[in-house]
Each structure stands twice: as structure tokens, then as C-alpha cells.
Amino acid sequence: MSWFSTANSRDDIIAEAPFLAEKFHQFYRSFWQLPMLPVQTLELCRLRIAQLHQCDTEWQREEIALAAILRKDLSQWNKSTNYSEAERACLEFAEVYTMDPQAISDEQADAVKAHYGDAGLVALIEALGMFYGLTRVSQLWELPAN
């Protein structure tokens, strides 16, 4: 239960605003159906943002199933051999994005583009924005972890 709603989940709280609920879901779902970015990469970035926010609710959420080792190693992805070069480029970008988007370097952007092209970089940035925002909303709303 949140401090302003008796609902327990993000979706149930968003349903308190029926004028936007379905439109939010359609927009959010669109990121998980993109041809230019693998969903595993998106899920890794979403989870890394949750870790950086120390947000258990978003860490425990599962948008897609990942191999257990990918979750286990995520806080030290840069020392692990379990992530592809493309995933590592996106994770590095996601970390800097989370801390300060003005600190993103051209080299970090180019590393993402080398794997996913210009469209992939734009898609990643949009998706990171939604993951970042929804993590903060989970914290603002004090959503319980599962």
C-alpha cells in the first residue's frame, strides 16, 4: 500500500488515473518490442538503474527472465565475462546516464552506436529515461518489493 493509495502495485496505482493508464502501458510496452535493441540489454540496464538507486522494488521486478548469473554479476559487470561487448557498452552508458546525462562522453555514445547504430542509441536513451523515472516513482510512491 502506498501513502496515497490502497493499491499495492505500480499498475494498480496507475489505474487510479484511468485517463492515462492504457496510454502509459502502450508507451512502456513499446520499448520491449524494438527491433534495434535486444530486450536482454534493456532489462540489464533497467536492473542496473535499480541497483544504483538501491531500489529493491525495481530490482525484484522481472520484465524478462535473465540467466541467474547475469543478475548475480550485475553490480560488477565490468569485471565479469558474462556480458557481451554490446551489453557492456550499454551498461556503461546507463551508469553515466543515471549519475548525470551531461557527463556522457562522445566515446560512450559511439560505443553504443557501434553495436546498435544511431537508432539504437536514441532508443536506449529513451528507454533509460523511462526506467530512471519509474524507479524514482517506485521510491516516491513507496511501492513494496515483491
Binding site: R29, A123, E126
Partner: peptide
């Protein structure tokens, strides 16, 4: 944003 057309219409509606 037009480079990711899959998100544009849902974004505009939201």
C-alpha cells in the same frame, strides 16, 4: 526521436 518510430505514436498519445 523519429529514428525510433515504434515509440513515437505511443509517446504522442501518452
Amino acid at each position: 526521436l523519429g529514428m525510433v518510430p515504434q515509440t513515437v505514436d505511443p509517446y504522442l498519445a501518452f
